[in-house]
Design a protein around this nucleic acid. Sequence first.
DNA 1: CCGTAGGGATAGGGTTTA
DNA 2: TTAAACCCTATCCCTACG
Lengths: 123, 123
Amino acid sequence: MGAPKQKWTSEEEAALKAGVIKHGAGKWRTILMDPEFSTILHLRSNVDLKDKWRNMNVMASGLGSRHRAKLALKNQTTPKHHEEAMALSTVVQSGEEILDAKPLAISRGPLRIDGPKKGITRL
Amino acid sequence: MGAPKQKWTSEEEAALKAGVIKHGAGKWRTILMDPEFSTILHLRSNVDLKDKWRNMNVMASGLGSRHRAKLALKNQTTPKHHEEAMALSTVVQSGEEILDAKPLAISRGPLRIDGPKKGITRL
DNA sequence: CCGTAGGGATAGGGTTTA
DNA sequence: TTAAACCCTATCCCTACG
């Protein structure tokens, strides 16, 4: 394949937020065409912006099951500094705080079922 | 608790391999929908198929270091070697009664690392 | 025809069990 | 402990609607 899953960087998220603030949510194409954001989001499509915004919104809803405190016990001999370009313009990089979510007790029940609908929606 | 570890049987593995050869790797839902394999894999989900295929690939690659160096691979020029062609070859050599093993160009050719090209790959 | 909205599937990371 | 199976989430793809 060729899509190694392009993870969104902080810069891209910030640009997306700024774009939404500037042009409004839903104006993905407009945001993408803006020279200010097109520099950072030039490899994202309007659909990608829409998807990312959706995901961010869901995450902010507090629907974070139980996954937030695990990666913090192994960093010592591997100085892993990873920064793409975290020094361009501190746009809207504030507000997102990791508030601990309640311990949702999702049991590992017998949920082997899968949508047997399939449905050939091939038009 | 509740979900006993369902070990993969030889029939299931064979069906998975055949499905990959027939429909291509990544088309888990399609493989699952195929009446030929759905009979055997009816209690597996598309995610299960993907996971199993991943495990098989890891085994075939001779690599078994997935669970060790997790915090040390990000911005490296690590060669992305996860070609399905290699996997297919392994499959063929597995000794299955698989005829009609054509390459099957299932690649869509996304290639996100390009530029301002819209890439209208619309069918 | 273009863009947006939504649903569904895939890919990868991480956790649990044998 | 290691490895296979499983679970969760982000991202990507496809289809419908405006």
